[in-house]
Design a protein around this nucleic acid. Sequence first.
DNA 1: AACTCGTCCAACCGCTGGATA
DNA 2: TTATCCAGCGGTTGGACGAGT
Length: 325
Amino acid sequence: MGRSSPCCSKAQDLKRGAWTADEDKILRDYIRLHGHGRWRNLPQKAGLKRCGKSCRLRWLNYLRPDIKRGNISSDEEELIIRLHNLLGNRWSLIAGRLPGRTDNEIKNYWNTNLSKRINNHNQRQTTNTSSSSLQPTLPQTEPTPFKIDFPVIRTKATKCSKPLLINNNDPPLLLHNNPTNNAAQSTQLLDSATANNHNNNSVLSSMVTNQNMQPATTSNGFVSFFNEDDDKELLSKTDLLIDDYCNLDDAAGGFHDLLINSDVMGDELLLLSPYSDQPTTVFSDDILNQWTHSYFTATDDDDHHVNDDDNNVSIINHHFQQSND
DNA sequence: AACTCGTCCAACCGCTGGATA
DNA sequence: TTATCCAGCGGTTGGACGAGT
């Protein structure tokens, strides 16, 4: 793979620094007319003396219509902390769980607010525990910062562009990580499903598994749920995360609960990720079954909820691409 | 009022890896 | 198979701003 030539050559006399309102308007108007993408050529076409990267960043972090303005709420803050515990500095993944927030915003918020608070908190905890066991506990009014001594999930997202349609009458697809279920076979399995089910409601699947994970009875990675609104919705294989379509507040067992209770998974099997020197969190079949069952059989009218009987749900167990290829 | 210092955050930079010719 | 394009990611930077002296 070659390195790209720098798109923002300093010799090109491109403007840098803060954007003006005029530039914003030009970019917004251009994207409104032509859509975004092709960032490299966009400035020239739009008449902006900026590099494509700069335009892209300005659009994504500021001009996008779905950007959420205003302070991070306490709920959002708590979610950021919990997601950071699980994902580490994967700002884009974290941002993906916070609608309207950008990775840059979350990263800045973390660096300027949360990391300090958490450091202070941990420092005080260390002091408390080292000095005396009779030290009073921290006041309960202390905001949520805490540190779960729990391994960060390291994912390796795999981008797939191949459209996939799966029969909604088929049983949910569950890919286990086991020695016979490597990435190629998973792809084959899904492609086969694709070929057999092109007239049916869509469900998105993903297929990256790790061929060295054992035992066969252990599932790891993430699970995503998909409901279908249209009869022929077309989705693409892509990288997924837990709760892409889950209600975070779902008391029946959504990701929120999983995050809140993540420390209870300490008893679950931990395996080494093939591409990281850090342990990978593994959800046992029991947890997955319990979680998915309660989720599927939840009986409210939320659009995100689907009934187990409908089979228009696919369970996708995925992630962890073999890195030693 | 002038200066210093710390904080915040928009923007930049280097890099990665998938897509494609 | 290789080179290049391109979008995206995460770390870093630097200017704006407010608080303190």
